[in-house]
Every structure is written in C-alpha cells, then in structure tokens.
Design a protein around this nucleic acid. Structure first.
Lengths: 336, 336
DNA sequence: TTGAAAGCGCTAACAC
DNA sequence: GTGTTAGCGCTTTCAA
C-alpha cells in the first residue's frame, strides 16, 4: 500500500501528469487510446486520487456539514438518512455536527465552511451560528439551508412543513372528538416549530369558540423524559385536560407512560396526539395518533437545495413547504 | 468575507509566513511579542486556517468515518453520539457512512482513508470493507476499529459486550421465571452479535437441562417490523412459546405490538425480553426487561482506540469487552 | 528568534 | 491531443 500518485501512473503510462489528470476529469481532451492506457496503469497501480490535494486545488471540499441538536432523536435521525442519501448520490460526504444544543458547538461546526472543510451547511436549529445582520447581503452568507426551523435571516433557504397548519389539524381532530380542555406539551420555546404549532393550537381553539387554557401549556423540550415530567404536571392542574397535544412523538411516548403509571387509560380517560410520526409511533401502546412529517423528504430537499446553492443555483423561492398529514390511530377517542 | 490567508496576516504583522505558522503551531519558537502581534493580526483579519492545505501538507485529514448499517436505528444512533463526543473532543470530525447494509457502500466509505479523506474507520458491521487476507500484516491495514461486531481479521481491534454471556443472562432470567418454551427472534444471521447471543441461548438452555427448540428461532434483522412479523410466525407454531427473547429492543417493540394485536397480554400470557436497552425501552408498555449495552461507552471506546491507533499507539489487547447488565422491568413474569 | 524556500498531490491555463 | 508550468495555502527543514 505505498502511496501512488498521479505521477506514478504518468510514468507507467508514458504520458505527462497533465494527461493523467485530463484522462480522469476531461475525458474528451484525451485520445481514447491514451485514456485507456492511463486508466489501465491507474488500476494496475491501485490509484486513488488524493482528496485533500484536489480540494485544495479546486477550493471544493466535497463535504457538507449537518448541524443538528441531537442525532439520537428519532425524528432527526430519519432526516439525516435523507440527507446522507442525496449527498452521497451527488458525490458529497456528510460531516456530522451533533451540538447537544450548545451554541458554541454550532459555531464550531459552522466554522467548517470558513476553514474549507465543508462547502455548505444544513442547519436543523433556530439560530444562525455565525454573525450576520438581518440586512447582510445573501452573497456574504455561506451556502446554508435551514431544516424544520427558521434561523431568522430572510435570505436563508428553509424547508419544513406548515407547522401552524399541522398544529391546527391536530387540535381540530381533538375538537371534533369533543375535547375542549386540551393540554399541550411543547418543545423548546425558542424553537420556531414549537411556536408555529402553538399558534395553530390557539387559532384552532379560537375558531371553534373554545378558549385555549394557557395554564395547560407546559413548555419543555422535544424529548421523551420531558413528556414524562410534563404529563405529571398536567395531571395536578385544577382543570384536568381530557386530551393532550404533544408537539413531538417522543414527548407523547413519555406522556403516555406517565399517564399509564398514574392509572389513566389512553385514550379512554385521556386522549393523546403526537407530532412527527416517527417510525416507532405505530408500535406504541396504544398506537399513536399524530401529525406525520415527511422527515426523509425534508432531509432530501434540504440537501438538493444546498448542493444547488453550492453550485451557484438559487431557487426562485426561499421557503419550501412539504405536506404533512394527520394519521389517526388509537390514542385519541371521542369524549364521553 | 474575503479569504484571508497566512500571508495576509504575515503582511499585517510585518513578519514572514513561516513565523505566522510557527506562532500557531510552535508557540515556543517565536518570541512572545511577535506571537502576540501575529495573533492580533489574525483576529483582526478574521483568519481561519485552510484545512485542506493543512491536511495536504501534513497528510492528516482530521476526519474519521463511521460505517454503520443504519443511522436511524436507535441503538446505533446512541453509539454515534459517543463517537461524535470524543472525536470532537480530540479535534477530529466525523464523516457519516450510512450503508443501509450495502457492501458496495461500505467499500466506498472505507475508501475514504485511501483517498486521505479520513484517517481511520469505525466499523459497525461484520465484514471487512476492503481486501485483506487473514494473514495480512497489521501494518498494511488502515486504522480501523470494529464496534459490536467482528469483521474477522484478528488484527482488527474490536469493542463490544460479551454477547454470549448477555444471551445467557437473558435466558437464565427467563429460566428462573419458569419458562422452558422459549422463542427467539434474531438479527441478521451473519451478524456476529446475533451468533454469540444465540450461542448463549443454547448454552444456557443446555445447562438448565432444557432443550432449545430450534423451531422456535426466527432469523431476521434487528428492526421493529421484523419483530412484528416474527412474533406472528411464532404464534402459529404448534408449540407456542411462553417467552420470547428478542435480540434487540426494536425487535421486542414490534414483537409486543404483534402479541397485543393478537390479543395476548405481555407479560401475563407471554413474557418478552429485549436486548440493548435503548432510551425508549423504559417507556414501552409494558416497560421492557432487557440486557443493557453501554452504547455510548462503546462509541467512546471505539473512538479513543481508533485515534490512538492513528497516533501510532496500539493497545496491548485487541478485544475490549464492556459490561452489560440485565435490567428487569415489567415485560417478563413468572410462568403460572 | 526569524525567514527563504521547497514542496504536499493535484488542476487548469497555456503553449506546443 | 499532449505537455509545461504555475500555483492552491500551508508546514517545515535549513540557514541566517
């Protein structure tokens, strides 16, 4: 396994290094015969181009970095799958940027594009990890696309579902089942997805002439243990909810666990509706009614957009909304 | 955001580029005054070293690639978290290699070290993604460590739990509860972890004077939908198992879903025990009895080992066994 | 303590 | 169609 370089194969094939390079990158500029000879020499010698050298020369790393709060989150990991698939497909590798919510790490990862370690960023979080003003011209922003959240700068592409409408759909489902006292367990209150879904909740309630009870909203994070804790809190409220809207399926999982532990039956005593439709949702007990997000498609779209951006192609629109859907399973029930 | 390089800051600080470089990498070789001046110039200009250039020059990419069958698998994603944490901590970035089980992609990703895109590999799969003979000397193998599985070459470091003992512990628990007719749902039959756990199953049965019923073993994959299908298969066997050993928690989730759907109660009618102890296991209904693997620690250990290997430090031993534990929750019960 | 200079392995004008 | 050559931005002898 000695390192064989372009010049070794040039020597072997009896051509110049420029010809070798062309044989690989500009097949047209080289005669078929020479090309064949070069390719043969390359395979005989077991040649693999040195990416660092190529990158340095072309000023393209061939990497993108995905900045994500927690890769172990079921919903996130499905998105990453989508990202990985199209990245590989288009010849890019993906660098993992698990931040565990730390802003400092977000910046660290974002810095990879400045250091040429990555050509662009997929950001699954709601704040811009570098310093820009709202009026910073787009050309001064590195290629970046925002998934599921909105980092605030209008020039940054984003792809997500219509979270507000998703929230409305969830609440309308509950409303139709006769529920009026609805509890909500949210994600991070700074998260734009949480804010939008909450807007949807309030709007749907108002439209139905029901007053949203702010006292029944528990602010937290999207994780299961938060759902567990929040459900307990909800249970001690004077006005006990007959249904709980969990802003993520993980939250719903923890929530249902708490409810069960406290002796309540879902959905007989309390209905629970989730958000995301992670792969496990259908296996929950009871199978979870939820708002499905097209996680993998979101990942794919983010990546297509980002790679286009890197290639200098800006889409006409900055906002991409993918369809969501209400999936009715067995965790919600008409009130008796 | 013009690209500012070493020479810009050299000019600004009134020194040579060599001095600038030294100021960063060999602080000792430069006077404090010059160093301060260089650092100041660098920060004024917003300098970030170009990683491609550094890598090319030093022949170190600062990346490792983790080759994993499916990043969306709960167990895997916890491992990755561990990997990510120590990699970042030691100044490395992690490249994601989700293979979806395709051997071709495994090789593609493994090739990243040959192209200098990565300095080493963490392999969470049971076959070596490049051509080596069993007697290929260690020096000819790129830095690689095997997590949870064994790729076969004796020179490759591996870290895992004692899967066989884990299997025995699970079965002994069931045996103690009085179960004799035990079904098993496995992962991929080529997976070494599955093979070992199965060995443990057989050995524990024999030791207890119970005959393992090969007819009650369903070979599959570690995923939830496999558990769903396999449980149904088990239910139609003439001799119906009173307990099912699922070789992963995802399998157990799908399995319990099937059982429930078919009208069985877990654990009253049938006991179920899993393997992994993923974060969700305690929220299952019923909470899952399982064999806990220290996923994050496995990830961390793999990475420490790999980075040491890259630094030229080979450990004395090639096999690292981390502790597992039986976690008894509510999905298993004494037979009546 | 500092600087000059030679590359790392490759690409891409440009000339032949 | 093929070869010469000048770097990409940095590190690192080696000399001053």
């Amino acid at each position: 396994m000695e390192k064989v370089g372009i010049k070794d194969i040039a020597a072997r094939a009896g051509v110049s290094i420029a010809t070798v390079s062309h044989a690989f990158r500009n097949p047209g500029r080289v005669s078929d015969k020479t090309r064949a000879r070069v390719l043969e020499a390359a395979s005989e010698l077991g040649y693999t181009p040195n990416r660092q050298a190529v990158s340095l020369r072309t000023a393209r790393s061939g990497n993108i970095v995905v900045i994500i709060p927690d890769i172990a989150d079921s919903y996130n990991s499905e998105i990453i799958k989508g990202i990985e698939a199209v990245a590989r497909n288009r010849g890019y590798a993906v660098l993992l940027g698990d931040t565990q919510g730390a802003e400092e790490r977000e910046r660290e990862f974002a810095n990879m594009v400045q250091s040429q370690q990555a050509d662009g960023i997929i950001l699954m979080s709601n704040n811009v990890p570098f310093d820009i003003e709202p009026d910073t011209p787009i050309e001064d922003i590195p290629p970046i696309v925002n998934g599921c959240e909105f980092a605030g700068h209008p020039g940054i592409l984003s792809v997500s579902i219509d979270d507000k409408q998703g929230g409305k759909d969830a609440i309308n489902h509950l409303l139709e089942l006769g529920h009026r006292d609805i509890g909500v367990i949210t994600g991070d209150r700074n998260s734009t997805s949480t804010q939008r879904r909450l807007e949807g909740f309030r709007e749907a309630m108002h439209e139905a002439g029901a007053e949203p009870d702010e006292n029944l909203i528990i602010y937290g994070t999207y994780e299961a243990d938060m759902g567990e804790a929040a459900a307990t809190e909800l249970l001690v409220r004077k006005k006990r909810p007959t249904a709980i809207f969990c802003l993520s399926d993980e939250l719903a999982l923890g929530c249902m666990y708490s409810l069960r532990t406290a002796g309540f039956s879902v959905p007989d005593d309390i209905s629970v509706i989730g958000f995301d439709d992670i792969a496990f949702a259908r296996y929950f007990s009871p199978p979870l009614t939820t708002i499905a997000q097209p996680a993998e498609a979101i990942g794919r779209t983010c990546t297509e957009l980002l790679l286009d951006l890197i290639d200098g192609k800006r889409p006409k629109s900055n906002r991409f909304i993918l369809p969501h859907a209400l999936i009715v399973r067995s965790s919600t029930k008409r009130i008796n």
